[in-house]
Amino acid sequence: MGRTSKDKRDIFYRLAKEQGWRARSAFKLLQAEETFHLLGGLTRAVDLCAAPGSWSQVLAKRMYEPLPPEERDKVKIIAVDLQGMAPIEGVTQLRADISKESTAEAIIKFFGGEKAQIVVSDGAPDSTGMHDFDAYVQGELLLSALSISTFILETGGSFVSKIYRADRTSRLYTQLKRFFKDVCVFKPSASRNSSIEAFVVARQFCLPEGHKPCNLITEWHDHPESWVCRKKENPPVVHVPFVAYKGDLDSDRTYDLGEDYVYKEPVQQPLTAAYQDILKKTSQINIKYEGIRVMHDEELFEEWFKAGVDQNSSHDAN
């Protein structure tokens, strides 16, 4: 397959390169913005798990670039990730762990003591192909993003994060409803129909009375009754609102390249891939194993065994 095959099979991948986006995922946030009008008039935004930076690009395009140069200082966008990424004008980078309270403190300090008006997260774990496990890990990552949001998001703020539609979706929805008055699951057309990926769009943030911001994963496991109000005998049915984006382009369809097609390289390659350390370590290891010999003839096995004993005896004698 040639280098143009992916451009033909994935229209959003092709458009991302043509329009200058670092990844096709930019269209997912663009479609969420078009549907819910999340970014209008905002000046403080946080992009969690930001690398390689396509969602940070969208934030900058919608919040920072439309303003005249003399007013751009009012806009503060911070991208948080353990991985590095190439600079984006109007976006400040913070290499930190989103599960640590010190990261939340650094973000609030960046905003001059104020809190964010929106928090977005397109983070996802490396896929194993085991759908139940992948969905579980993705749910834990979503809870980590929500946990730090309870520290850094102002009242009335919005939250957008990737979610896998699976067994735990209704429970994660119940958790989100603790903190947001309006919550739904959104499926952009840039996300393939064959994928269980979707996005939660939560608006009108408000801390519950008496709730102290904390690690929600720890709270969930230690005190599940604090947010899942259900009886073991008759768990309530939870209907999760679902919104789908209807666009002209289909991410599962193959499109002809056309006569005017010109191949373009990706806008920005990852600076520090998540698996980079693993590659470095394994490059220094020689992974070789001795062959396993299976013998079904007892006489041959006895001869082989005796020969081995004789060799060992001769080695010992030397």
Results as ranks from 00 to 15, higher is better:
2 G>V: 02
7 D>P: 14
11 I>L: 13
14 R>V: 07
14 R>I: 13
14 R>D: 13
16 A>P: 04
17 K>E: 04
17 K>V: 00
18 E>D: 09
18 E>W: 03
20 G>C: 11
22 R>L: 07
22 R>A: 11
23 A>V: 11
25 S>H: 10
36 F>Y: 10
36 F>T: 14
37 H>V: 12
38 L>W: 05
39 L>V: 08
40 G>C: 09
42 L>P: 03
43 T>R: 06
48 L>Y: 02
49 C>N: 10
49 C>D: 05
49 C>H: 08
53 G>H: 11
53 G>S: 10
55 W>E: 08
58 V>L: 06
64 Y>P: 00
66 P>I: 04
70 E>H: 02
70 E>I: 05
73 D>M: 04
75 V>I: 00
75 V>T: 00
78 I>T: 09
79 A>F: 06
93 Q>F: 09
94 L>M: 01
95 R>W: 00
102 S>I: 05
103 T>L: 04
104 A>Q: 05
105 E>N: 11
107 I>P: 00
108 I>R: 10
109 K>T: 08
110 F>H: 08
111 F>I: 07
111 F>D: 06
112 G>H: 02
114 E>N: 11
117 Q>I: 00
119 V>R: 00
123 G>W: 01
125 P>I: 14
126 D>P: 13
129 G>K: 07
130 M>P: 03
130 M>C: 13
131 H>Y: 00
132 D>G: 15
133 F>A: 13
134 D>H: 08
136 Y>R: 15
137 V>P: 08
142 L>I: 06
143 L>A: 07
143 L>C: 12
144 S>W: 01
144 S>L: 06
144 S>P: 03
145 A>G: 01
145 A>K: 05
145 A>H: 02
151 F>Y: 07
157 G>S: 14
159 F>H: 07
161 S>C: 15
161 S>H: 01
162 K>W: 03
162 K>Y: 00
163 I>L: 15
164 Y>F: 14
165 R>A: 09
165 R>I: 01
173 Y>W: 01
175 Q>N: 12
176 L>V: 02
177 K>G: 13
178 R>E: 14
181 K>S: 09
185 V>M: 05
185 V>A: 03
185 V>H: 00
189 S>A: 09
190 A>Q: 11
191 S>G: 06
193 N>C: 02
195 S>M: 01
196 I>E: 04
196 I>V: 08
197 E>L: 14
197 E>C: 12
201 V>M: 05
204 Q>W: 00
205 F>N: 04
206 C>R: 15
207 L>W: 00
210 G>R: 14
211 H>L: 12
215 N>A: 01
215 N>L: 05
220 W>V: 15
225 E>R: 13
227 W>C: 15
228 V>I: 15
229 C>L: 15
230 R>Y: 04
232 K>M: 09
232 K>A: 10
235 P>V: 08
237 V>P: 02
240 V>C: 14
240 V>E: 01
244 A>L: 00
252 D>T: 02
252 D>G: 07
254 T>R: 08
256 D>Q: 06
257 L>A: 12
257 L>E: 08
263 Y>V: 04
267 V>G: 07
268 Q>G: 10
270 P>K: 12
272 T>P: 08
273 A>L: 07
273 A>K: 15
274 A>Y: 00
284 Q>R: 13
287 I>M: 09
290 E>C: 13
291 G>R: 12
291 G>T: 09
292 I>A: 12
297 D>V: 05
299 E>L: 06
299 E>C: 01
302 E>G: 06
311 Q>N: 08
315 H>P: 05
317 A>E: 05
